[in-house]
Amino acid sequence: MIWDRLLNWFSDIKERNDFLRDWNRSAKNAYIDGVVPTLLEARTTIGTIEFRHEFSKFMAGGFRVKALSGKAMSRDELMGIGKMILDNDVLVRKLVSNGWDTLEIHDSHGLIGLKWQLKKHTRSLGN
């Protein structure tokens, strides 16, 4: 019984790490191909306790995307990145099901940071 839980825990970590690696590889390729103007890099953070849900990972619920633009970005620019992610229903559901509860968007200077509660942005896939 304890071994099953331990194996599930390691499996969850591997799935999350694979997702992050795939995200960062896709973001890098999109930047290189000129699809997006800014290189985006994701990592896991603590997240926001108030945003926790039934799938949240303890002390690892934040999905932080850093825009590596080389300059300070405006709030509107960061909102645009957040909206692009939150408008992708499948992506949001993947984030939630993998234990992330908070979407964080920051620029490379770290002066501005925005947060969203991911669970509030899950919509029916039929709509």
Results as ranks from 00 to 15, higher is better:
E15N: 13
E15Y: 06
E15F: 04
E15V: 09
E15S: 14
E15C: 03
E15H: 02
E15P: 02
R16N: 01
R16F: 07
N17L: 13
N17D: 14
N17E: 13
D18V: 08
F19E: 00
L20F: 12
L20Y: 04
R21I: 03
R21N: 04
R21E: 11
R21H: 12
R21M: 07
D22L: 08
D22W: 06
D22F: 11
W23H: 07
N24A: 05
N24H: 02
N24G: 06
N24Y: 01
N24L: 01
R25S: 06
R25C: 05
S26V: 00
S26C: 01
S26R: 14
S26A: 10
A27N: 06
K28V: 00
K28L: 13
N29D: 11
N29P: 01
N29W: 02
N29L: 14
N29S: 11
N29E: 13
Y31C: 05
D33E: 15
D33S: 14
D33T: 03
G34K: 08
V35Q: 09
V35D: 04
V35K: 10
V35R: 03
V35L: 06
V36Q: 06
T38Y: 01
L39E: 08
L39C: 00
L39A: 12
L40F: 06
L40G: 02
L40R: 10
L40Q: 05
E41S: 01
E41V: 05
E41N: 07
E41W: 10
A42H: 04
R43M: 05
R43L: 09
R43E: 15
R43D: 13
R43F: 12
T44G: 08
T44H: 01
T44A: 11
T44E: 10
T44M: 04
T44W: 01
T45L: 00
T45P: 04
T45D: 09
T45Q: 08
I46K: 14
I46Y: 12
I46C: 05
G47C: 13
G47S: 02
G47Y: 04
G47L: 06
G47V: 00
T48W: 00
T48Q: 14
T48F: 10
T48M: 11
I49F: 10
I49K: 10
I49E: 13
E50V: 04
E50D: 15
E50F: 03
E50A: 14
E50N: 08
F51W: 07
F51Q: 08
F51E: 09
F51G: 03
F51L: 03
R52N: 09
R52C: 04
R52L: 11
R52H: 15
H53I: 12
H53A: 08
H53C: 08
H53V: 05
H53Q: 13
H53P: 15
E54P: 11
F55D: 10
F55Y: 10
K57Q: 12
K57Y: 14
K57S: 11
F58N: 07
F58P: 04
F58E: 12
F58M: 00
F58A: 05
F58W: 11
M59V: 09
M59L: 15
M59A: 12
G61D: 12
G61N: 07
G61Y: 06
G62W: 08
G62N: 10
G62D: 15
F63A: 00
